[in-house]
Design a protein around this nucleic acid. Sequence first.
RNA 1: UGGGCCGUCGACUAAUGGUAGGUCAAGUGCCUUUGGAGCACUUUGUCUAGGUUCGAAUCCUAGCGGCCCAGCCA
Length: 574
Amino acid sequence: MTPSTAEAETDANSAPESRPSNFLRDKIIEDLKTNKYSGRVQTRFPPEPNGYLHIGHAKAICIDFGLAEEFGGKTNLRFDDTNPEKEDVEYVESIKQDVLWLGFHWDGLHYASDYFDQLYEWAIHLIEDGKAYVDDLSAEQIRQYRGTLTEPGKDSPYRNRPVEENLKLFERMRAGEFPDGSRVLRAKIDMASPNLNLRDPVMYRILHAEHHRTGNKWPIYPMYDFAHGQSDSIEKVTHSMCSLEFADHQPLYNWFIEQLGIFPSQQIEFDRLGLTYTVMSKRLLRRMVEDGTVRGWDDPRMPTLGGLRRRGYTPEAIRNFVAAVGVSRTNGIVDLSMLEHFVREDLNKRALRVMAVLRPLKVVIDNYPENQVEQMDAQNNPEDESAGSRQVPFSRELYIEQDDFREVPPPKYFRLSPGKEVRLRYGYFITAKSVVKDEKGEIVEVHCTYDPATRGGNAPDGRKVKSTIHWVSARHAIDAEVRIYENLFRVPDPTDVPYGHNFTENLNLNSLAVIQHAKLEPSLANAAAGSRYQFERLGYFAADPDSDRGAPVFNRTVALKDTWAKVEKKQGKH
RNA sequence: UGGGCCGUCGACUAAUGGUAGGUCAAGUGCCUUUGGAGCACUUUGUCUAGGUUCGAAUCCUAGCGGCCCAGCCA
């Protein structure tokens, strides 16, 4: 009890000072200082349930929940479900799951649709005040009347309808008497405003659609602008943080709150997260799901939280990444390598090490007894003593990585080649003696000798070897499917295409490589879906839900840093 | 072309009128039973031009550049 209390105090007291500042935190601190909301901090995370959350949402989640938590505030999860045609319970369930997975817990769980009655009442108030009117113009006409970026709009002929008529018409809209699109309710603001959002924005549209929560109760639905600010206000949200593209809506957000005289929530905008080599819009992600470019919303190549989770990312890695990226009002695009750094950092501490050979090459140790099997002691995690060790079977015939043998070694190649001695990790020193080739001239077997005195990996005479390679006993190996992922796109910014071109032209057609008969050490036979490992010298891998007992499927989360690959690349250039 | 927002190392971000710093990336070396990890070191930056000031990344003006807005989407 005492230590945790002390810890919490330390956190609460020192955190705001020790963290690098950002303008959101500064704003909250200022509001606290001026007692703007009597010391209260209330935020909300307001997704529309029309798709799956992606890492961009993770940033918003960390900001909404993280900042509130930092100042002892509360955070609601609120679904902005005002457009029944695009929304579904499938999405609300996945969103809840993803928020929890990230490690956040909401205080209130709300839906904009919970406020439909209140919103309707408020709309009537505005009509009575002469601040809203029913417009019979068609969508096309409304667009024409709105004007352009440089020209003012002009008033609708229905703009000055008497209050009584508006009231009656709006009631009939609500009663379902009119067909979709035949009328709307608009706020009466200013058709000449340079801010198009203020040119009599639509508050309600007619939509005879079944809503995933309210069913067929409503034939009219409020627009975002007539729902979001009021929902914030109802929930007494003090800091309503949203992305930059809503900045133009802020005057309207405030206008409704002022006209209605309700709790003065305030909107603050911050920049979205952009990441290289992927796309980050629900529209584009949906398209790739629907046209089969990827296998689904949780395809491990997707930047969705479901995709990252399946790929093997941890919530901690994502949270650390988001914290490192920071928040501002610039429009940037973060290097994917930064995200990868944070998974490696996290997984390095916690992932159990195992040996797996992705592209097997048979090694026969000629002087090792035919039927002998030894159990070699292998550390589970050199970074974490408490992870313990395990036994790995060793025998006369092994698999090593094809990359770990070269008949003719290039300069600086430290691995196995004829006459060269290397260490088998946790095993023996071996020396390559000869190769066996098939009719095509491909090497199918390497024959070696081992030094029995080097068991465990050290030579009593103190001689050193340059390289340690991983291996799996052929007789004991488990066959596995391993899925290797590359970036979904070939270029850093896939949506940056010349006019008339499409982001799909930037797709990397080789973003998935499936290895069918990788050889794993036997301890991996029944790896549980979602469990994460480091395959030594290769990378981090996570067991996919497609795994069956005895037939595991692994996804590569991220490769280990590969210094040799850099050397090789440099050599190739010269 | 109206309005809004924004320009700091290759990327992201800090410095809140007073030493341009951090992370990633890149590079060099050390170390290593993972060419992993770790450690040390290094390179590169305030969009431009004026102005205010003892002093400007920070304030002002102008220019240049980028992003957003003309859904009955959010």
